[in-house]
Nucleic acid binder design. Structure first.
Length: 288
DNA sequence: CGGCTCGGCGAGTAGTATTG
DNA sequence: CAATACTACTCGCCGAGCCG
């Protein structure tokens, strides 16, 4: 089975050019579970609303908003109360802008952005930043049109966007605000999520997780919920059901085998949990 | 002192195994 | 398949300890 970890291992874009733009039409059940990656992600909400949680802080994005997710930030994305929405997600590695020789741009801006000393603000107020907005929209259209030399045009746009951020003094200097305690907690959550994703096929008890986090199990439940919005077991069941859905769609295995495979050793409990989340039985889901 | 973090207790709920 | 008993989990509450 494909090994899936919360830290995305997939390379965004072609292997020769690490920038990709996804166009998502998100229905009312749209939910991208907590994960993180080395790339920067810029979300442009074309239509509707989106709720994005970044490092335990909820950002409500409205139509026309741009949301910036910095490298290594733990984030999840979901639709807002029964509404569909359309958004672009620009995912790219800042290393495509790196220089091999020492350069003041590299030293003052690119490297600090890569290692997290400088960050983009989560939500940008575009009242006074229409140039940044225009440049991002231009970047999206360059990507779509793919005229000769489009990669160069995208690179130029990215540098232009960063230069506008610098010019307008909108980058956040993390060294000034570094919250070591908060970072420590985020690291624990990442550890727990990684453990769940690596071991969901086996039995997982809250006690196992509490040992990983060095907390007592009651506190861990609350700690986890305060970050993820679900208790550890709710999250685990949800993840198992999502994994089961993939197997139901893409394999001919029996529902019983699939339920065992994703870590449910109690078949009736699996059906119960499946119906609770998907509003149909696993077999009905396959027939759809 | 007040705010915050974390541990621990107890009660209620959810999940699971067993039995008839 | 339902009833039942047991275990695991969650959550409200309280208190200890730490820090500014």
């Amino acid at each position: 089975m494909k090994d899936i970890h919360l830290k995305e291992k997939s390379v965004h874009g072609e292997s020769s050019f690490h920038l990709h733009i996804y166009h998502h039409i998100a229905d009312k059940h749209y939910y991208v579970s907590h994960h993180w990656h080395d790339e920067i992600e810029i979300i442009y909400i074309e239509k509707g609303d989106l709720e994005i949680t970044i490092d335990n802080h909820v950002t409500k994005g409205k139509e026309g908003d741009f949301i910036f997710i910095n490298p290594q930030s733990l984030h999840s994305i979901s639709s807002v109360a029964n509404h569909t929405s359309i958004h672009y997600a620009l995912v790219f590695s800042l290393s495509i802008l790196s220089y091999e020789i020492y350069d003041i741009c590299q030293d003052h801006y690119i490297r600090p952005l890569i290692n997290g000393d400088l960050k983009f603000p989560a939500l940008l107020d575009f009242k006074n930043s229409s140039r940044i907005k225009d440049e991002i929209l231009y970047l999206i259209s360059s990507y779509k049109n793919r005229k000769y030399g489009w990669q160069l045009s995208l690179k130029a746009s990215l540098l232009k966007i960063i230069s506008l951020f610098v010019e307008e003094d909108k980058l956040v200097n993390e060294l000034k605000y570094l919250d070591i305690k908060k970072q420590y907690k985020i690291d624990i959550i990442k550890k727990l999520l990684n453990y769940i994703h690596s071991n969901y096929q086996n039995k997982i008890y809250v006690d196992d997780l509490s040992k990983i986090a060095n907390m007592n199990k009651e506190y861990l439940s609350r700690f986890f919920k305060s970050f993820i919005g679900k208790t550890p077991i709710e999250y685990l069941n949800n993840y198992r059901i999502e994994r089961a859905c993939v197997l139901i769609k893409n394999t001919d295995s029996s529902i019983l085998d699939i339920s065992m495979n994703v870590g449910f050793d109690n078949f009736s409990y699996f059906i119960k949990q499946f119906k609770k989340r998907k509003k149909c039985t696993p077999l009905q889901y396959r027939k759809k």
